[in-house]
Design a protein around this nucleic acid. Structure first.
Lengths: 208, 208, 208, 208
DNA sequence: GATGAATGAGCCTTCATTCAT
DNA sequence: GATGAATGAAGGCTCATTCAT
């Protein structure tokens, strides 16, 4: 209420710096790919000195791990907020989840590119599982619960686990397309593709 | 003096060496990820000397590009062979395509991991488009043609392009899952997931 | 209100801090060696912050130089005190000097290790001479004077300078042994070795 | 016998390079001290590229370890050769050992400085013991055996272990002096000091 | 006095590339 | 064809030093 805003206290300032560096890391990975992401490049993207990155994150590996963890947690919170506002009906919950995936906060070119870069390196290294394993499992469980409720309500002849997997793969797949295709289709079309998938799976809930 | 078979001519031997090195590259990418793939590691995997890799490929970048091109062409030929044996009926052609994606020659852990690694680096660099752009487009066109035929035959209320995209994303998605998930599901289940998708899209052609 | 003693004045507090940091430096050199002694490590050993070390010493080099000077001066005062209590007889003075070298205040593992580390770096850099040159010369002169007196008294057929040097080298050598040998011998044995040397040099003064 | 000397074969060439780099390492340690010895400096001293050092030694640590091991082995062989030419009489053997320590091949400014630098770092790190522990013990054992023989022959009232230790410390001490003192005394004087020590210990064998 | 964020020089190390054999 | 020594650019990391608070 005063008109001289307090300068952020030391501790918060520290978190601010870390957040700033994590955003710079995401941008760098998106711009150059995982293999060519260097600390110098990240620092340059943040407009800070190279040594500061290591001051805050100790090693490059930790910086990348924390970046991934940040994205995973951000995504989780985004979903949680969407579900919290959606009410109990499973169709509304699924619609809210899909809607959430296409909101600009998540569906950025940078975010998508960074996700894909991490997936590409995920295989040969444990860091992806360490950062995302639990949250991925949580996501899958949520989605399966919703699909199970829809299947129960609608009497659809499909295993809920399959339905959940198909939805997840189509969503993630349109993300990959956005950064892989020579001539990517617009976000709106990606969204329609996901909605078409929902309609195919649960026609009585998602009318054409 | 004896009629021992001629040693293979130079040119073939040359191609043999290159093929051997490309296989070693795929294995190395699968084992270590794209970012940590080095020429020394590739040479070690092939049981050859360090310098020989560059003798045959001049440049690391060219080695990777040719590896990707090899995989893309291998995949194309595999598809072509499957379609050639499938007859003209679109349902049979789609079934053949799906079947082809799960044959052990293509659906190897190494191949899948290498594909994902390349996808992860595909953004931010032109080499993926250069190697795969045309073949990917060809694949999409084939798939859309089949889907269009099925839609026409069955009167399904779905744009063929959407159907083709959904099928492609589910197929590629199960590939990603195989190298990304903490507890990956068996190949058989991946296949069922794709078949379920086909059934959802074209129920009158793929009966449950 | 209460007659609590005045907090120590700034100047003394300042000296206290400096002494504390010098002790931490000795401990760090002993624990990690000269090459791996960093300001951060010294600060940690002192339980103080990183920047404070430079606040008090301006420069790492100056911290090390003052640490060395402190040890040299400490050693000089220790000797002086021992000689002051020894009376005029040269044999007693030599015995007092030797005794002083094995008192626990000087003959600490940390002190010995730090001395050896400084000796190791002494070549190739002027800082050792700057800090210790004069005091070392003083020590040598004292020792030679005592040896000359003993030689004069006892009529030993040895140049006093040689005798002084042999004594000094055996003393310093047992120090080096204490931090260099895989299975160092006990301090008592080091002392006996020095006393044996004195007996060899001046048998009529130091009876077996 | 031919007048076109064979170029050194590959394997020997490799050893030549390693020997050259080890000499450069000794020179660099002598010139700059242990703490300021860098790979770049070593490479520059050898007139070779910086990367080549690691090509041959993998890490800086290994380079230093092998340098130390080389010096230890060199010293051992030097001693062995001296003893081999000395005959069985213990006095002759001791004289040969002392003589060996002052031959120019061993008693170089560089060698001495490097030894002292290694001793200075020996404390806080296992590498010295790993490289020199066994050879040092062997040296001590040799020296003690000789001293025991001399004591037996001459009936000297001194424990052979003490005599051996005093000799060793005086020898090593004059080495240290050569790189530590502001105004070092000449090598001849160092030698006289050692000989004086021998005479003190074993007067009937080493007449004044 | 004291803290700790920030900087940048310099180091070790990796690795693609060149080249002599 | 093939090997492996040699180079040098570039990256991650350490650490002394500066500076704002």
């Amino acid at each position: 209420m005063t008109d001289t805003p307090e300068p952020p206290p030391r501790t918060q300032s520290r978190e601010t710096r870390r957040a700033q560096l994590i955003e710079a890391t995401i941008a760098t990975i998106a711009a150059r790919g995982y293999a060519r992401t260097t600390l110098t490049e990240v620092a340059k993207a943040a407009g800070l000195s190279h040594g500061l990155v290591l001051f805050h994150f100790q090693t490059k590996e930790r910086l990348l791990a924390e970046t991934l963890a940040f994205m995973a947690e951000e995504y989780r919170q985004h979903r949680a907020a969407a579900l919290a506002g959606a009410g109990p009906a499973p169709a509304a919950r699924l619609a809210a989840l899909i809607e959430a995936d296409f909101q600009p906060a998540i569906n950025t070119q940078s975010r998508l590119a960074a996700w894909c870069a991490f997936w590409g390196e995920a295989q040969s290294r444990p860091f992806y599982q360490e950062a995302c394993g639990a949250l991925d499992a949580e996501y899958t469980a949520e989605l399966e619960a919703i699909c199970a409720a829809l299947v129960a309500e609608g009497g659809y002849p499909i295993p809920p686990a399959h339905a959940a997997r198909i939805l997840r793969l189509v969503i993630e797949g349109t993300w990959l397309d956005a950064v892989t295709l020579a001539e990517p289709y617009p976000v709106a079309e990606a969204r329609q593709t996901v909605e078409t998938t929902a309609r195919l799976l649960f026609p009585r809930h998602f009318a054409g």
